[in-house]
C-alpha cells in the first residue's frame, strides 16, 4: 500500500528513512547509556551496602 510518490519517490523515501534511522540511533543511544549507568550504579550501591 505504498502511496504514489511520483517523480520524487527517492527523495521522500530517503528523507523518511534517514530521519527515522537518526531518531532510532538517538533513542537507542539514550536507552543503552541509561541502562549501562543504571547497572553500574546498582553494582556500586551493592558494594557500598556490603561495606557500610
Amino acid at each position: 500500500m505504498m502511496p504514489d510518490l511520483g517523480r520524487y519517490a527517492v527523495e521522500v523515501t530517503l528523507a523518511y528513512a534517514v530521519s527515522l534511522a537518526l531518531l532510532a540511533t538517538l533513542v537507542g543511544w539514550v536507552w543503552l547509556r541509561g541502562r549501562r549507568v543504571r547497572r553500574a550504579l546498582a553494582d556500586i550501591e551493592a558494594r557500598a551496602g556490603r561495606k557500610g
Partner: peptide, 20 residues
C-alpha cells in the same frame, strides 16, 4: 527526562566512588 535520570545516576555513582 531519560537523559537527566542517567546523568543523575552517573553523578551519584561518581559521588559514591569518591566517598569510597
Amino acid at each position: 527526562l531519560a537523559g537527566t535520570r542517567t546523568e543523575i545516576r552517573a553523578r551519584r555513582m561518581k559521588a559514591l566512588i569518591n566517598r569510597e
